[in-house]
């Protein structure tokens, strides 16, 4: 393993350019991709800590498992479709020479984002629905956590949608920058990540 060799060699004994003329990044990916990966690790830490708190709080005794409204299933479907769209945008973008708003990649990208917007709106409706049926944020710690976890998840998705909307707007304005390929790629990765997080959260919320 080269990283291991890197940190165990004796740097004072080596003079010259060990790796030829090029510099040597630790990971063979683009900077944006690395930053996104690090960010997803940070987000995972956030969700893990929330889940740890969830399980600790659950053990205290006043916990009443909540019944999840069926609309959450519909929302989940929206998020899955959104992820599928973004993934197909990635696939299409590999085959296309230029990406425009009417190209298949551009359309999939746009629809995928809109589906995510629909998911956010759907989650918002679920909060209202719960509040109307007396399952508001204060009614029980299980409900409190439902609001907490869904809102933190939605906040992460909104961050993704911010990037998406910037790209979508410039796509609509007719820009065909090569940069979109990477944006589409990164958005898709982030979307899949948030989908996995959501399914994990949903699983925990529905079963406890």
């Amino acid at each position: 393993m080269s990283l291991y060799r890197d940190v165990t060699n004796k740097p004072w004994d080596q003079v010259g350019l060990p790796d030829g003329i090029e510099n040597k990044p630790v990971f063979a990916v683009s900077n944006e991709r690395l930053a996104l990966t690090v960010f997803m690790i940070i987000a995972s830490v956030i969700f893990s800590l929330l889940l740890v708190s969830y399980y600790i709080r659950m053990g205290i005794g006043d916990w009443v498992p909540m019944s999840i409204p069926t609309q959450v299933w519909a929302n989940t479907t929206l998020l899955i479709l959104s992820s599928v769209c973004l993934q197909s945008a990635v696939v299409f973008s590999r085959k296309q020479s230029t990406i425009s708003v009417v190209s298949r990649a551009g359309l999939s990208f746009g629809i995928g984002g809109l589906l995510a917007v629909a998911f956010v709106f759907g989650q918002y409706q679920v909060w209202g629905l719960l509040a109307e049926t007396g399952q508001g944020v204060r009614s029980n710690p299980a409900n409190s956590f439902f609001y907490l976890l869904t809102s933190v998840h939605v906040a992460h998705l909104l961050g993704g949608l911010w990037v998406w909307s910037k790209s979508a707007i410039s796509l609509i304005q007719g820009s065909t920058s090569e940069h979109f390929r990477q944006t589409i790629n990164l958005c898709a990765i982030y979307w899949h990540f948030l989908l996995v997080v959501w399914i994990g959260l949903f699983f925990v919320l529905a079963n406890t």
Binding site: D6, P18, D19, N23
Partner: peptide, 12 residues
């Protein structure tokens, strides 16, 4: 991690 100039290994 990524942008160090050429020849600048981690242990340098």
């Amino acid at each position: 991690l990524q942008a160090r100039t050429r020849g600048l290994t981690l242990m340098r």
